[in-house]
């Protein structure tokens, strides 16, 4: 339907249904924190957040979060502010568009 926001559908194990909402809440907090850290050029803290996302995303069935985490960690190591900003936006957009189907 025209005007309906684009959704990214992901299928996740029903065993994880109870813990997914808090995991996603934590990633939304990461978006806010990353945005703040970017203004302070705190690359070390951004590296830690990226590293953690890399480690957890796929385990929760959200491979895209691991991929964004890998890119965030690398960009933070390189202190590449120009690359970090779009990655944070990509994470925010992904969380907004995410449509989970539990199987």
């Amino acid at each position: 339907m025209a005007g309906e926001p684009h959704k990214v559908q992901v299928q996740i194990d029903r065993d994880l249904e109870e813990i997914i909402p808090s995991y996603l809440d934590n990633r939304r907090k990461d978006v806010l924190q990353l945005t703040d850290l970017l203004t302070k050029n705190d690359f070390a803290a951004m590296k830690v957040l990226g590293h953690r996302m890399k480690g957890t995303g796929a385990g929760y069935g959200l491979d895209a979060i691991s991929q964004i985490g890998i890119a965030l960690e690398q960009a933070a190591i390189s202190q590449d502010s120009a690359a970090l900003a779009p990655l944070i936006q990509e994470l925010a957009l992904y969380l907004e568009q995410l449509d989970i189907v539990y199987l």
């Binding site: 065993d15 994880l16 813990i19 385990g59």
Partner: peptide, 9 residues
């Protein structure tokens, strides 16, 4: 997040 995931599983 890792601890929650692994414990739960």
């Amino acid at each position: 997040d890792i601890c929650t995931l692994v414990s739960r599983f």
